[in-house]
């Protein structure tokens, strides 16, 4: 497998597309691509990075404790399972 296979495309509404390594949290991937979004705890309990998931599916690396709606994710504690389309808090 080439390393390209382990990267996924994330479309960020109003920002552009980024490429995320599939083992990186979405928050880390965004920051690596110089997209700086609002965050506090980076552990899934505060909800500051609450993001709308428009398309795709994510997998949590830490159980999220902050309140999120059904169509929302916490990018600080999840990884992309497939290409995503999201709207982030800038």
């Amino acid at each position: 497998m080439s390393s390209n296979d382990k990267s996924l495309r994330i479309d960020v509404v109003d920002v552009g597309a980024i490429i995320s390594p599939s083992d990186s949290t979405i928050l880390n991937a965004l920051e690596a691509a110089d997209v700086h979004i609002h965050y506090h705890c980076r552990e899934g309990f505060c909800g500051a990075c609450r993001t709308k998931l428009i398309e795709g599916e994510v997998e949590y690396t830490t159980d999220p404790l902050a309140f999120i709606d059904d169509d929302e994710i916490l990018p600080c504690c999840c990884v992309a399972k497939c290409p995503l389309k999201i709207k982030v808090p800038l």
Partner: peptide, 11 residues
């Protein structure tokens, strides 16, 4: 850090 957790509970 604690207050962020408390906020999560009221939300």
């Amino acid at each position: 850090r604690d207050e962020n957790l408390h906020l999560s509970s009221t939300q």
